[in-house]
């Protein structure tokens, strides 16, 4: 196990030359706000790996990445990994890919399943939490635990992104004060619906954007 806060694979070094993402449109104060935030992403599969990519490109300064699994050939149809990463722990492979986008992003990695016992350690200090696991029971556990224990931290969860239904059915809803739900709420992978990159990434983009909006001070989706 790699504990968060004990492994910072790529700490920011002030003397290191970093190439910022060109974005002259974003107010420097807002850019600094994103850079000062940590987002915990639980699950680094179809949702989480793509959410992480988008948050790094958006300028979020630090991510906590959690996933127990390794990269499999079957992941490559929708997840942000490459053939030469098959067999690698997903958190390590993802860290490698994110570093190729922005060398100054800070990453804390945990290769483990999230449980009620370790969840609070994972989300400690996060400005926002992204639930991106695939199992419905784990989703409910994460949401219920976070709402109970860290109710003031915005949580973006996803439910209903399988199949080839229209992406127009994928919406972002503020279901409770600090709970945002992305998806069509119904299309369940257990019903035999396949997972398409286009629809999974639409949900991931909606999750990432909900995070960006919340971090910038826009709580309504």
């Amino acid at each position: 196990m790699i504990a968060p806060d004990t492994l910072d694979l790529h700490p920011h070094r002030p003397d290191e030359v970093s190439v910022p993402i060109p974005d002259t449109a974003l107010d420097p104060e807002l850019r600094a706000r994103l850079r000062g935030c940590t987002v915990a992403i639980i699950g680094c599969g179809g949702l989480g790996s793509n959410v992480a990519e988008m948050l790094v490109r958006s300028g979020v300064g630090r991510l906590t990445l959690v996933d127990f699994d390794v990269v499999d050939e079957r992941n490559l149809n929708r997840q942000f990994f490459f053939r030469d990463q098959i067999g690698m722990p997903k958190v390590i492979a993802l860290a490698e890919n994110l570093q190729r986008i922005r060398s100054d992003v800070r990453l804390d990695l945990l290769q483990d399943r999230v449980t009620p016992e370790n969840l609070l350690g994972v989300v400690r200090g996060a400005c926002a939490i992204v639930e991106a696991v695939d199992d419905a029971g784990a989703k409910a556990m994460i949401v219920n635990t976070c709402l109970a224990e860290v109710p003031n931290v915005p949580l973006v969860t996803a439910s209903g992104l399988a199949g080839y239904g229209s992406t127009n059915a994928i919406v972002t809803e503020r279901m409770a004060e600090n709970l945002y739900v992305v998806g069509d709420l119904t299309s369940d992978v257990r019903d035999g619906h396949p997972l398409f990159a286009s629809r999974v990434m639409a949900a991931a983009a909606a999750q990432a954007h909900a995070v960006v909006r919340v971090l910038l001070g826009y709580p309504e989706p």
Partner: peptide, 24 residues
């Protein structure tokens, strides 16, 4: 706000229940 199932409800409460579905 999250509430455990054993919680007693009170006049005027708004109870919401949401079933997450698999996929990620």
């Amino acid at each position: 706000r999250h509430a455990p199932e054993e919680r007693e409800l009170r006049q005027g409460d708004r109870l919401a229940i949401f079933p997450p579905v698999a996929g990620g």
